[in-house]
Amino acid sequence: MSNTNELIDFKEKQDYYEGKSPFALSIARLKKNKWAMFSFWVLCIYVLSTIVTTYNVFGIHEAAYDFNIKNRYVPMFNSISELFGTDTFGRNVLARAILGARISLFLGLFSGLIMIPVAILIGSIAGYYGGVMDDISVYIMSVIVAIPGMLIIMSLVQTLGRSFLIIAFAFAITGWVGLARVIRGAFFQAREFEYVLAARTLGANDFRIIFKHILPNTFHFVILRFVLNFVSVIKMEVFLAYIGLSVIGVPTWGNMINESKTELMASHWQNMTAATLFMFIFLVCLNIFGDAIRDAFDPKLKNV
């Protein structure tokens, strides 16, 4: 009885696995995860809204930036266009929360784009060549880890100025170490594997082995780090806003929550509710999606 079942299982599995690359299998596994796909689409909506609101649709920029003192502290759920009311300057809180996604997304994107090439380069060279290269990279990493990341970010933003690129750069400086370590470890292991030996025997040079053969195997770490980087950047941005070091003059979630600090005493919950809600949904989706990526791409953890 159980034997036939196993045979059927085996047949199904064979049909399922045949002719598919590990990457395609992982994507298929990811697609089967309903929650992951749901959060993926929610994240897509955020990205889409960011792209759309770059242009001034429905006068969203005026609603978010222009002062309108007569119309201040409109309560929440009063009308559809002012769903979350208005803040102390009469600016539309809903519009500001939507535009706040933009800064967070761009900060995450830019810091990721700076961080990932650095991490890949240093991690792969350290792990592949070992020896002196490895010692130097590990030394740099341990120095950066030994200083609290928050302190580096705050000091850099304070000395260089509170501009958008500098904040992204500061996030990247502290963020690359974790990824570089993981990639270094993966390269360390992969160096000994047969497929690397095979590639070398076939006459592939180091560059080709690193980028064509080993790096694709560590790619899920990169994707995962890229996704989770948004989480840490958004949380850090709120912190920076509280300290007073976030990007000036634009609505960000951190700035909104920071402003709500004084408004809560007078029970004006508009800024707090809108920013928290938008940020919370975004972070939950990122976390779920990140988990799903890790589960789908890491075959060792499949059963956990």
């Binding site: 951190g254 809560l264 919370f280 939950v284």
Partner: peptide, 9 residues
């Protein structure tokens, strides 16, 4: 997924 600042506030 919740920010510490929100919880503190």
């Amino acid at each position: 997924s919740i920010s510490m600042l929100v919880l503190i506030l």
